[in-house]
Amino acid sequence: MEEIINKVANSVLEVFDLEDFFPKQSLQSIDIAEWLTEGIVLIEKDFRESLKNYDWLQYKDSYVSIFCSTDAILPAWTFALVAVNLKFIAIKVVAGSKHDLLLNLYQEKLEQIDFSIYDKKPVILKGCATKPVPNEAYVLAVQKLVPFAKSIMFGEACSAVPLFKISK
Rank of each mutant, 00 (worst) to 15 (best):
E108P: 03
N104P: 03
S97I: 03
E111D: 13
L105Y: 01
K120Q: 15
G96R: 07
K120D: 15
Y106H: 02
Y106V: 01
K109G: 01
V94G: 03
G96A: 09
H99M: 13
L101Y: 05
L101I: 05
L110N: 02
G96L: 11
E108Y: 05
K121I: 11
S116W: 00
V94Y: 10
K92A: 09
L110R: 07
N104K: 12
Y118F: 14
K120T: 14
D114A: 04
L101W: 05
V93I: 12
Y106Q: 06
E111S: 08
L105G: 01
V94T: 09
P122N: 13
L103M: 01
E111Q: 07
K109C: 04
K109T: 02
S116F: 03
K121L: 15
A95I: 08
L101M: 05
K92D: 02
L105S: 00
V94E: 05
Y118V: 03
F115H: 05
D100K: 05
D100M: 08
Q112M: 10
Y118P: 07
L110F: 08
K92F: 06
D100R: 08
S97T: 13
K92V: 01
E108G: 06
V94S: 10
K120P: 10
L110H: 07
V93Y: 08
Y106G: 04
L102H: 00
L103D: 04
I117A: 11
D100V: 05
L103W: 10
Q112G: 05
E111K: 06
E108H: 03
D114L: 02
K98R: 10
L101T: 08
Y106I: 00
Q107F: 10
E111G: 01
I117F: 14
K98S: 13
V94F: 03
Q112I: 06
S116N: 06
K121Y: 12
L110Q: 08
I113Q: 00
S116T: 11
L101F: 01
K120G: 11
L105A: 08
D119V: 06
K98T: 12
D100F: 03
S116C: 09
S97E: 07
D114C: 02
K120S: 15
P122L: 11
I117D: 13
L101P: 09
E108V: 11
Q112V: 03
V93S: 14
G96H: 11
K121F: 11
Y118E: 09
L101N: 06
K109I: 06
